[in-house]
Write a protein that binds this DNA or RNA. Structure first.
Lengths: 137, 137
DNA sequence: AAACCATTCATACTAAAGTACCAAAAAGCT
DNA sequence: AGCTTTTTGGTACTTTAGTATGAATGGTTT
């Protein structure tokens, strides 16, 4: 909402500035009309592209993660790290090597994660974590 | 690439048309300069927003599935069905019940899928399938 | 200091996943 | 009809995943 107001304000200000420029070129002869029109074109193309970026970012938003929800579910930092690696498709042994801890410890973390995510399997945990935006899609 | 060429062509044509309009208003007096500038502004804002839409759609694309790639990898219809259920987090037994076939058959399909997707585990298969847009994110 | 939590690790076990190999219907193609 | 691929299923086996339980360590809170 704030973004929309900002964009429209910028639009109105740009219009006013450009009309002033139009008047100016009107007074000082019509030799620079093309230049003014070019500036108008570039500026408004820029505004269009700016709105573009804003929208494109809002579309990507579901890709974002909700760390608050992670803590709400009582998932610890280490457990969260393990969750990320599970989602990448690594085995317990591989995760252990990556985080420099034993496979046994990974099993403990995974077991805790399954309880906290209310999942029966690691594949289900991945699905649930993505639905809850705990991990990027 | 084709889109980019199209957009730039549209830009150049618009510029030429607007310069012609500029000349016209120059001949018939300067009373309509503001109108010309307004048209330029609206047209280029529209172009910017058009590029917006194109980009926004390409961002949403990863949500789409590429059935051609599924066939390219030699994944059969039934195997693909199993892949979808794996990604939902179901166990082999659960998939068997859902598709009304034995767990043994699911194991066969999964084993074939892992070879075709070049994955070691079903979790990795999910990750790879999503990267290749075989299944929706 | 005592209590608490996160992290680590181990053992022993059960369950699920995955491999290998085979085989037989069923469906599709030429 | 003959061939090929798909789909189905089984057995036997290995590997990985997951559970249950207990325990040690270090950091934080009360």
């Amino acid at each position: 909402m704030k973004k929309t107001i900002f964009v429209f304000s910028a639009l109105i200000i740009s219009l006013l500035v450009l009309f002033k420029l139009g008047e100016y070129s009107f007074i000082s002869g019509n030799t620079s009309i093309e230049i003014v029109i070019s500036i108008v074109a570039i500026v408004f193309l820029g505004i269009g592209l700016y709105i573009n970026r804003r929208k494109a970012q809002s579309v990507r938003e579901p890709n974002h993660v909700d760390f608050k929800k992670v803590k709400t579910l009582g998932i610890s930092d280490r457990e969260y790290e393990v969750l990320i690696e599970i989602a990448k498709g690594l085995s317990n042994k591989e995760i252990g090597k990556k985080l420099h801890i034993s496979e046994s410890t990974i099993k403990t973390h995974v077991s805790n994660l399954l309880v906290k995510l209310n999942a029966k399997r690691r594949t289900q945990a991945i699905q649930i974590a993505k639905e809850l935006s705990l991990i990027p899609q």
